[in-house]
Computed example of a mutant assay.
Amino acid sequence: MKIGYAPGAYDLFHIGHLNILRHARAHCDRLVAGVVADDVLELTKGRRPVVPLAERAEIVRHLSIVDDVFVETQPDKLLTWQEVRFDVIFKGDDWRGTPKGDRLERDFAAVGVEVVYFPYTVHTSSTLLRRALASLEAPVDSHAGRATG
């Protein structure tokens, strides 16, 4: 049985998240989605998620393509592997050829875990959704009905 692991924030769940999980499911027998804890996201990305961990994990847990959810409470994927024991880890191809991706490949090659990349959904991302939400929150000039600032 091939166990796959698809880590992510899964904040502001969108089609890019669904695409990664669907692709991952097609490449393994059992899919574990790693949902990164709020504190770890703040440490690694410099910001807290919009949707709290319990809610993000609950959303992902209820997808029929996901067999289990693992909450990542620390950033070291090798420590996560020691607990979950997956055979393949899935990432978006925005990691391919980057220092982080190269390190991930090197670290997992040493323990026999394959790294598989899937296309990153360029037109939709949590970062873009955050920007859209921020623009909606901009102060509105009540006389002109437009955002100010």
Rank of each mutant, 00 (worst) to 15 (best):
H27P: 02
V111M: 00
V116D: 05
P7G: 07
G46V: 07
T127Q: 03
D141W: 09
I65K: 00
E105D: 10
A6M: 11
T121E: 03
A147V: 15
D107H: 13
D87Y: 08
L43D: 05
H123Y: 07
T148N: 02
D102E: 11
L41D: 11
L12K: 03
L128M: 00
G149T: 08
I59L: 13
T127C: 07
G112Y: 07
I89V: 13
E137M: 06
Y5P: 02
V60N: 01
V36M: 14
L104K: 04
V115W: 00
D67K: 03
K2I: 14
Q82F: 00
E83R: 12
V116G: 06
D76Y: 13
C28A: 12
D107C: 04
D76N: 13
D11L: 12
H17S: 08
L18A: 03
L136G: 08
I65F: 03
V51L: 14
L136E: 09
R61M: 13
H23Y: 12
A134R: 15
R130Q: 09
C28E: 08
V69M: 09
D39T: 07
R30F: 06
V122T: 14
R25W: 14
S125K: 04
V140P: 07
A147H: 14
L12I: 14
G145R: 08
I15P: 03
A144I: 03
S135M: 09
K91T: 00
S126F: 10
T148E: 00
D76Q: 15
V40C: 04
R25L: 14
R25M: 14
L79Y: 05
V115L: 01
R103L: 05
V32G: 06
T121V: 07
K77N: 01
L43E: 09
R47F: 01
V115N: 02
H143L: 10
R30A: 01
R61E: 14
T148H: 10
K91N: 00
R56M: 07
L133R: 07
Y117Q: 15
T121Y: 15
H27R: 08
F118I: 01
V71D: 00
L63C: 11
G149E: 02
G149S: 11
V51S: 11
E58T: 06
G97Q: 14
W95V: 04
V66Q: 12
V36Q: 13
P139E: 06
L12V: 09
L43Q: 11
V84E: 05
R146G: 05
A37S: 12
R85P: 03
R146N: 12
V51H: 06
T127Y: 11
G8P: 12
G46A: 13
A138T: 03
R61V: 11
F13Q: 05
S135F: 15
A147G: 15
G97V: 06
E137I: 04
G92Q: 08
P7N: 11
L78V: 12
A26M: 05
D38M: 02
F13G: 04
T98E: 02
A138R: 13
L128E: 03
L41V: 07
R131L: 02
D107W: 04
G145A: 02
A132N: 02
G8F: 10
